[in-house]
């Protein structure tokens, strides 16, 4: 009897505290397990990978695993329409795919690198699309019809241009220091480790 009385006394004394603990635990479990509907605009550089794989993403200091990424109609960005929030205690902000590591994958360009539209007017911009077999450093060079180099740029592995999967780069007048290129055909090559992986050509209209 005495012990029951003692427990009741303790309960009455710590009633508020215990209730708080239970409520807090319930809230914690709800947050951890529930699927949160939200909209989040990923930065431009991450969308290509996000389209294909689950990614880890740092949200408010805690890393979270994102999944169920869906593309919206906007051309340049991808929107996360729903995601699961799962604390991972990962302090670094990394975008790493959940797929197998690609150390043994041969570095190559899958298919043909292409410009769209082609032909195009330089002031109306165009995009260059190509698919890489793995993350790798890529150098792009462009040439005119006399074989003169008119553009050269490096894209580091893991950044847009050097990402595994499909890469989309935009070509504008600023690409050529705002020089008005004459109409004609231009050539480009994709280089990795001093080796030409792919080549292509595009035409500029007046």
């Amino acid at each position: 009897m005495n012990s029951l009385k003692t427990m009741k006394t303790i309960y009455m004394h710590y009633k508020k505290t215990l209730r708080s603990i239970v409520y807090f635990a319930l809230i914690f479990v709800t947050i951890c397990s529930a699927e949160v509907k939200a909209e989040y605009e990923l930065p431009n550089y991450s969308f290509i990978r996000a389209n294909s794989y689950n990614v880890t993403f740092n949200a408010d200091g805690d890393a979270a695993e994102l999944y169920n990424l869906r593309r919206t109609e906007t051309e340049k960005t991808y929107r996360v329409l729903s995601f699961g929030y799962k604390p991972m205690h990962n302090e670094s902000i990394v975008f790493s795919e959940s797929a197998e590591p690609d150390y043994n994958v041969e570095p190559k360009v899958i298919g043909k690198p292409l410009f769209y539209p082609n032909p195009f007017r330089l002031r109306e911009n165009a995009r260059l699309g190509y698919e890489l077999s793995k993350d790798m450093d890529i150098e792009i060079r462009m040439y005119d019809m006399r074989g003169n180099e008119i553009f050269k740029s490096n894209f580091e592995s893991g950044t847009l241009g050097g990402l595994r999967g499909y890469n989309t780069l935009y070509l504008t007048q600023s690409t050529f220091d705002f020089y008005d290129l004459p109409s004609g055909v231009y050539f480009f090559i994709l280089i990795h480790a001093e080796k030409v992986l792919a080549r292509g050509k595009f035409a500029i209209m007046p």
Binding site: R71, K112, L114, N118, P119, Y166, F202, A203
Partner: peptide, 25 residues
């Protein structure tokens, strides 16, 4: 000056580029 087989491209529904046909310059 002649250049052959320049790809005329299109954009498919999954945002990938493809070759519609080829033209010469």
């Amino acid at each position: 000056a002649s250049i052959y087989d320049i790809p005329h491209t299109g954009l498919n529904t999954s945002d990938r580029l493809y070759v519609k046909s080829y033209f010469d310059f």
